[in-house]
Design a protein around this nucleic acid. Structure first.
Length: 873
RNA sequence: GGGAGUUUAGCUCAGCUGGUUCAGAGCAUCUGCCUUACAAGCAGAGGGUCGAUGGUUCGAAUCCGUCAACUCCCA
């Protein structure tokens, strides 16, 4: 069969993916093998795969493929989450744009119908992209966080936690997103440095001509003021004890209170207290029993409590109020100051602190076992303990979790209210009614209505490792028992609290067991200039386009080769090109091996040294890779395999065994070479599955079912250290002689004769032939004397003389030798210094001292050899 | 303000528990080669006082202290 000039990924990616699917290799069913389970961190349904996902999915596929080839029953569960805020925003936007419908015109049911339609249309895109990457997930197990069983599981957990007293309803100062009209968790708020303005406003003191000047960044909230607070140690305000101030514009009377919370140095040292619109003020209000006056609507416009500018947006109102205050002489000073604004991660709106009734999960009790699980090392975090401190800090200072969202897209909170606000929590209306009767008496005409709000998406995804196996909806079922706890979770370090910590909590609560043994944190993917990849910057490459152009394997190679665990990686298209070149290199090695004709091996034919060497070298790397996987050092493993294939196999091994032009190759050597090639493909397969599978099938005829994806790894063979050392010597001498040829300006075709002066002739016995071939020498012989009319050099401990027809340039020769000499003499001085240090000889380990002595001897031998050569010139 | 991380060749990064597999790899650069597998290639080479500064030690990129710059998390 004629093989194409270069590796053609285009048809092969799909061909092999289809083959694996047809053979059901991704399918996992419980059996007697040990399971190796990964649940995908569900990307949300709104999305397309970006580079962060690509890295993530590639890592998972590498782990799962390696496990599948190592005797495990590998199960990778794909899925996606409903992402309530993001998705609802997109659906609302789509309805407005495409159909001219406002959400407010729709009932909940109508809206959800649109949302599901939208999800069906776009939800699948991400799966096809994951498949394009070559990911071997079990597509029969696709799970969505709004699936029927999943929905029920979430509700079940809510009811259960409520009954355990771990969920409560409470008034709290929350982060309010006035655009999305929903509460945000602290984690969904981003703080940005901005230059704000501090306005100095004068409030009249009641019953006097005196004024007190306060400084505020938010003059539009003065109508919500319920006190002015000063530091009790502040001399300036001592006399105002018991007095009242008057809020400008609306002339409301408020007390002057004293609290050490106030910083005397900041602003004027007097703080207006607005409990409804600032978290710190709210706490101050609680302490001093102040009135809470909420002056804003949920969309951020002023409400009737504000008395003035009612209905105006908070920022428009600010401008007008400032103007009015200025006009009336109340605003006495404006100054700039550095502050931070809180903005919604989803809508970018400036977050409004707001008093609101929300549902909360009590975290303290749940956090304890989850903290212990990590501290004890039951859950191991990679890399190292780097995130342990962060995790511990968060868990020890964990705050209650606000889980209600003022949205429809999500699991509706199973709380049922009567007209008076009395409520019960139950999974269904029927159960709710039953419960209501039991707790509050007969229903009579009362109709129970369900809470309008839905639950935070994370309140569903924290059950992910359990409920993808129906572990919550059908506790103790066979699959859940078999697959849970899962093996490893691969995810971004940015969601350690959102998700990882909470999954551990849920696991400990419902299974009394950790959800995964290992957590592998990936870093953030940035562009080659270190910028975060984002749509705005347009620096995120299109994945499908990239796969189309370079091939899935090249893309996988590109993201993996520079991806140390937990560190950000600077993504550069050059690495994808490197990956493509790599597949091409393998392809060409295949072509070479396939074009050889063989000659029957004679029984007396000694095993080729190259074969002996590569056997050991391969075993050595196989062991290294095992160790690297143990530590989740995947990028290191890939680098190691890359170098083994390209450098050791292609550049050394194949050159060593390569027969002359149109010459046959020894059958034995050839079949060993095919075997090596297979093992190399096997090692590489988890990283670059398509190309390796293709090459594996081209190396020889395969029986049905003999596919690389399921070929089990054998235990690495024995490593012969002596052979490895000999090969290193060969490489060193070859490189040294080639360098000498280069420096002497020999052309590749110019032949040379080589004479070796050595104490260890035996070491060259096996490699002599290889040496001759690799440096284009007609002969390699040994000598005890100086060889006339030759160029000399020292490589390792031995001296080499190179003779050829070409005239030699003694000046250049001399220069080169002198350079070597100078270096060696300097080296000798440093070694001597060490050895003449009595403390070193006394304290250092004997083997270390021995090594230094050896260094000295070698250096002396070399110096002597160079000096001799110099004399000849 | 509190905490974590990073700083090694022009760039991106390895270097575990201190000592010839400690100064490494890959890109990039330079030189020579279109050598019948591969120019998407081959063969060579150059390049770093391991962020700064003290200390521990016979010996420090590696351990400890201080400082600087950058990044992230939390308030």
């Amino acid at each position: 069969m004629e093989l194409s000039k270069n590796y053609q990924h285009a048809s092969l990616d799909d061909k092999w993916y289809k083959h694996w699917m047809d053979k059901q290799y991704f399918r996992s069913v419980p059996d007697e093998r040990q399971p190796y389970t990964i649940v995908i961190p569900p990307p949300n349904v709104t999305g397309i795969l970006h580079m962060g996902h690509t890295l993530n999915e590639t890592i998972q596929d590498i782990l799962i493929r390696r496990a599948r080839m190592t005797g495990f029953n590998a199960c990778w569960v794909p899925g996606s989450d409903h992402a309530s805020i993001a998705t609802e925003a997109k659906v609302v936007d789509m309805l407005k744009r495409e159909k001219g419908i406002e959400k407010s015109q729709l009932t909940r049911e109508e809206f959800l119908k649109h949302a599901y339609e939208w999800k069906d249309k776009y939800g699948g895109i991400i799966y096809s992209q994951i498949a394009k990457l070559g990911c071997s997930c079990d597509w029969d197990r696709v799970t969505f966080t709004m699936d029927d069983h999943y929905y029920k599981a979430v509700i079940k957990v809510f009811v259960d936690l409520y009954n355990k007293g771990l969920i409560y309803r409470g008034a709290r100062m929350i982060n309010w997103d006035p655009v999305a009209k929903t509460a945000l968790s602290d984690e969904e708020v981003e703080y940005r440095e901005v230059t704000g303005k501090l306005f100095h406003l004068q409030y009249n003191i009641e019953g006097s001509d005196e004024k007190i000047t306060i400084a505020t960044g938010r003059p539009e909230t003065i109508m919500g003021d319920s006190a002015i607070c000063v530091n009790p140690n502040d001399e300036r305000y001592q006399h105002l004890k018991g007095k009242y101030a008057v809020v400008p514009l609306i002339n409301r009377r408020i007390p002057i209170i004293f609290d050490e919370y106030v910083d005397k140095e900041f602003g004027t040292g007097a703080l207006k207290v607005t409990p409804a619109h600032d978290l710190n003020d709210y706490n101050l209000g609680l302490k001093h029993h102040l009135e809470v006056i909420d002056t804003l609507h949920e969309d951020g416009t002023l409400n009737a409590n504000a008395q003035i500018y009612v209905g105006e947006d908070r920022f428009a109102a600010r401008k007008k109020i400032v103007a009015e205050l200025k006009e009336k002489g109340i605003l006495v000073k404006e100054e700039e100051y550095a502050t931070k604004t809180a903005q919604s991660q989803r809508t970018n709106a400036v977050v409004e602190p707001r008093i609101s009734t929300q549902w909360f999960v009590k975290m303290a009790d749940l956090a304890k076992p989850a903290l212990d699980a990590v501290v004890n090392g039951d859950v191991k975090i990679h890399p190292g303990d780097r995130f342990l401190a962060t995790y511990r800090y968060w868990m020890e200072n964990v705050k209650d979790w606000c889980i209600s969202r003022q949205l429809w897209w999500g699991q509706q909170i199973p709380a049922w209210y009567d007209a008076n606000g009395k409520f019960v929590v139950a999974a269904t209306l029927a159960e709710a009614e039953q419960l209501y009767i039991e707790t509050h008496g007969p229903l009579g005409d009362t109709k129970l209505t369900q809470d309008e709000d839905c639950l935070d998406t994370w309140f569903s995804s924290w059950l992910w490792p359990m409920e993808v196996f129906n572990g919550i909806s059908q506790p103790g079922n066979a699959e859940a028992k078999y697959y849970y706890p899962t093996s490893v979770l691969v995810t971004g370090q940015d969601i350690i609290f959102f998700w990882v910590a909470r999954m551990i909590m849920a696991g400990m609560e419902y299974e009394q067991e950790i959800p995964f043994q290992d957590v592998y944190f990936t870093g953030m993917v940035r562009d080659s200039q270190g910028r975060k990849m984002s749509k705005q910057l347009g620096n995120s490459p299109d994945l499908l386009e990239m796969i189309g152009h370079y091939g899935a394997d090249a893309v996988r190679f590109g993201v993996m080769i520079t991806a140390p665990a937990g560190n950000d990686l600077l993504f550069d298209m050059a690495t994808v090109e490197q990956g493509q070149k790599f597949t091409n290199k393998i392809w060409n090695a295949l072509k070479l091996v396939k074009m050889w004709n063989t000659t029957p091996s004679t029984s007396e034919a000694p095993t080729h040294f190259a074969v002996k060497w590569f056997e050991s070298r391969l075993a050595q790397v196989q062991q290294e890779v095992i160790d690297l996987f143990k530590d989740f050092k995947l990028s290191e493993a890939l680098k190691t395999i890359y170098s083994l294939i390209w450098d050791d196999f292609c550049n050394w091994y194949l050159e060593w065994i390569k027969p002359g032009y149109e010459q046959p190759i020894d059958a034995n050597v050839h079949s060993k070479t095919i075997e090596f090639f297979e093992q190399l493909m096997q090692l590489l397969h988890p990283f670059m599955p398509h190309a390796t599978e293709e090459v594996y099938h081209l190396l020889r005829e395969r029986a049905a079912g003999d596919d690389l994806i399921v070929k089990q790894f054998a235990t690495p063979g024995a490593i012969n250290a002596a052979v490895l050392a000999e090969a290193e010597l060969a490489k060193e001498v070859i490189t040294g002689l080639r360098d000498l040829r280069n420096k002497s300006q020999y052309k590749p075709k110019d032949v040379i004769e080589v004479f070796i002066e050595t104490q260890q002739q035996g070491a060259y016995a096996d490699i002599q032939e290889i040496l001759a071939k690799q440096v284009n020498a007609t002969s390699i012989s040994f000598t005890n004397d100086v060889v006339e009319k030759s160029i000399a050099c020292v490589i390792g401990k031995d001296k080499f003389y190179v003779k050829s027809e070409i005239e030699i340039d003694p000046a250049a020769q001399k220069e080169s030798l002198l350079k070597d000499l100078a270096y060696l003499q300097g080296f000798l001085v440093s070694v001597d210094k060490k050895l003449s240090n009595e403390k070193f000889v006394a304290n250092a380990k004997p083997e270390v001292v021995e090594v230094e002595r050896k260094k000295r001897e070698d250096a002396e031998v070399k110096i002597k050899a160079i000096e001799e050569s110099l004399k000849l010139l």
